[in-house]
Design a protein around this nucleic acid. Structure first.
Lengths: 144, 144
DNA sequence: ATTAGTGCAAACGTTTTGCAACTAG
DNA sequence: CTAGTTGCAAAACGTTTGCACTAAT
């Protein structure tokens, strides 16, 4: 029942703990929710001005592979969230401004797994996202 | 109860019916399901060799805006589907090869709308996608 | 010492843009 | 006629790659 930290997991898999890697993980705490690679990079650069954006990308893709972070596709660049910190949830995304909030519901059931299995699919994950207009954007559009 | 065709809708909104636009709409029929802009372009070029890819993009974005087609984000380039032809459904996507199938279930309920409304969101749409491995890719990975 | 990780620069693929020419209504 | 549409070329954007150098183990 010991909780494995991201760093433990990296070590366990034989990856090195570099200052850059530490910083990427920490950056999530001080970034807006669902940061882009860019935003994370800017955050990391406050501590380590010389990190390169590609290092951020490389680490994000490693962390995604290890399921330490989740990568969420957006038409205008992907965003990330720390996996372990958050319990399972889904998102409300404003189609105007991109503002994102979490919503504590999940429709996933065994029935879907079975439905998928009929087609030969083994489900490993799912996304359920709502698109709409946040309050601000509703007002803005109303005035026009 | 008259069914509005995509062309009617375009006309009604004051957009012109160009050969390129017709061809894009037709291309969906002869393309693999969930084509990319590239694939649609190649299909259109069989009839009209000189269409430019940007015209395809411009039309897809217009058609998406009018909800005639749906744009689905993928990390490796977005894909499209004709909205009207298909009843409401969701997708199974293979994370290895990208193979996509439809699944005839939808968990959307009023309860979600209300939950979202509490946070000031007006929901306009949603996506529910399952990720996993298709049969082929399961076998392939098993052999390794 | 060894292997993994880094920064740099350049490349990549998708999508968007400005513009002058064209065309459907 | 004329507003909307096109093709072209170039750019923008997020992301990935090859390489020689550096650093964690």
């Amino acid at each position: 029942m010991t909780k494995e930290t991201p760093l433990d997991l990296l070590r366990a898999k034989g990856y090195k703990i570099t200052p850059q890697r530490r910083a990427v993980l920490q950056a999530f705490a001080s970034c807006p929710p669902f940061p882009t690679a860019q935003q994370l990079c800017e955050e990391v650069r406050k501590q380590q001005p010389d990190v390169s954006l590609d290092t951020i990308y490389r680490n994000l893709s490693l962390l995604t592979e290890l399921d330490i972070v989740h990568e969420i596709f957006r038409s205008s660049g992907n965003v990330y969230e720390l996996a372990d910190a958050t319990h399972h949830h889904h998102h409300l995304v404003c189609t105007e401004c991109g503002h994102t909030e979490c919503i504590d519901v999940c429709p996933m059931t065994d029935a879907y797994e079975q439905e998928a299995a009929k087609k030969g699919f083994a489900i490993t994950g799912h996304i359920f996202e709502f698109y709409g207009l946040c309050q601000k954007c509703q007002q803005k559009l109303h005035k026009k």
